[in-house]
Design a protein around this nucleic acid. Structure first.
Length: 426
RNA sequence: GUGGGAGUAGCUCAAUCGGUAGAGCAUCGGACUGUGGCUCCGACGGUUGCGGGUUCAAUUCCCGUCUCCCACCCCA
């Protein structure tokens, strides 16, 4: 049997209804904040991610699905392409390619699959879905304002509340600008030097590759050592500090709860200043439901103009896992099941179904070979509200038997009044 | 990528010391010709994840492999 590849999965009904419920709610929220949808390619030049996400990140160095495309002619060199592991780089590439700065501030959102070649786990798949947004534009359009950071965070709180996620937690930090981080990194290296030998193997590795990451360490014995390290907050320059303070001021003003976590770091190279994560307890080890932050230098790193920005990505798979809403509860059930009874009744049933569906009713129907009992069972199984019987008697009388399945109440309604009758009952 | 656990019918699970695979639910049919949910009867359904080894005999023991789950790692 051919199975779906490792780390991929089929989403089937009724689960798809839950996904659609989430996406519909999310789209409404984005609309209220005047965000507009962007759709970028599923694959891009490998170079985009190398430059945008960072060569040294785990994502780029070992988790991408990359292949060499054939050249068009024998003489052509192939091009290296990669399934997108995240969507921010693609959005910023599109921003640059289409010169979106001419439109002022761009507030864009996307919903779509991303791909990382990781070992699968609960809430971690090789094809996973992200709902994300980016606010990007010239500084003159306000793209660098802390008001944008706060707006994004407030939008997220609204969005999570809206889809029914309870008990989310917002963790907030500022990772400063590149100069701050360089200083901080140096200080961290110095603090690590005398003690690193006593720390866990992972920390010893991190100390060399990416010292910031030691803050992610979960080994209990290392914690007292980590407590003594400097934090990024001590190295923020005046502008970064002011920016961060103003983000918090606005959050307080709109009453969005958050906790500061000066150990919060981001895995992608492009982040500057504000960094955040929303977590949820129901997710096990993959407890981050969404993450994001500011990336003031990304556009320039990709060869574009200065275009400060801030964005986030929600792990849609994880969001759905955190939902308490059941899939069943959001599936729309048939308003009426039409039961053609007796040979030749399919035609009449089809006419009625067509007419009722034109009135926005959810209609399903059986087959004139079914015995009536079977039609009832079918209607029950799909949790229809009414069953409408189309038999010889009804056609002759030009009036149809309609039975409410839950109560057993039955009435006869003339053909001309059918649609209105159902609409009144909705 | 590392370590651990698990894979038996569509689903949830049994199968004693290694003795030749079973139940509930679901599905389909009947009891019941135009009135359902309940009940009863019956049927369908399996390369025991896959491949190899040991054995007279393997769902069971061993090796490999694949997939999922848990933790690490990483991230959303």
């Amino acid at each position: 049997m051919i199975k779906s590849p490792r780390g991929t999965r089929d989403l089937l009904p009724p689960d798809t209804a839950l996904w659609n419920f989430v996406e519909a709610a999310v789209r409404e929220v984005f609309q209220a904040y005047n965000f507009h949808e962007i759709r970028t390619p599923i694959f891009e030049s490998t170079e985009l991610f190398a430059r945008g996400v960072g060569e040294d990140t785990d994502i780029v160095s070992k988790e991408m699905f990359t292949w060499e495309d054939r050249g068009r002619a024998e003489s052509d060199k192939g091009q290296s392409l990669t399934l997108r592991p995240e969507n921010t780089a693609g959005v910023v590439r599109a921003y640059i390619e289409h010169k979106l700065w001419d439109r002022g501030l761009s507030k864009l959102f996307y919903i779509g699959p991303q791909f990382r070649r990781e070992r699968p786990q609960k809430g971690r798949y090789r094809q996973f879905y992200q709902i994300g947004a980016e606010v990007i534009g010239p500084a003159a359009a306000g793209s660098q304002s802390p008001a944008r950071d706060a707006e994004i965070l407030e939008l997220l709180a609204t969005l999570l509340d809206r889809v029914g996620i309870v008990n989310w937690k917002l963790e907030l930090n500022s990772v400063g600008c590149p100069a701050d981080r360089a200083q901080f990194n140096e200080a961290l290296r110095q603090a690590l030097a005398p003690v690193v030998a006593t720390m866990c193997a992972d920390c010893q590795r991190r100390a060399v590759t990416n010292p910031l990451r030691v803050f992610d360490c979960k080994v209990p014995e290392d914690q007292p050592i980590i407590e003594t390290f400097p934090t990024i907050s001590q190295f923020l320059d005046e502008a970064c500090r002011t920016h961060y303070e103003e983000v918090k001021n606005i959050l307080n003003a709109v009453q969005i709860p958050y906790v500061e976590n000066n150990r919060l770091v981001r895995g992608l190279d492009y982040y500057t200043r504000t960094a955040f994560e929303f977590t949820h307890g129901a997710l096990g080890a993959q407890n981050a439901i969404l993450g994001g932050g500011r990336y003031d230098g990304l556009s320039e790193a990709l060869g574009g103009p200065a275009a400060p920005g801030i964005g986030f990505a929600i792990g849609e798979d994880r969001l759905v896992l955190s939902l308490t809403t059941s899939a069943e509860s959001v599936v729309r059930k048939p308003d009426v099941y039409i039961a053609p009874l007796g040979a030749g009744m399919n035609r009449e049933a089809a006419r009625l179904a067509r007419e009722l569906r034109r009135h926005d009713l959810v209609v399903d129907l059986g087959d004139d070979s079914f015995r009536l009992k079977k039609s009832f069972e079918a209607a029950d199984k799909m949790a229809g509200r009414y069953i409408l019987i189309v038999g010889e008697n009804e056609v002759k009388a030009d009036a149809f038997a309609i039975k409410h399945l839950a109560s057993g109440e039955q009435v006869t309604v003339p053909r001309a009044e059918l649609a209105q009758w159902f609409l009144r009952k909705k």
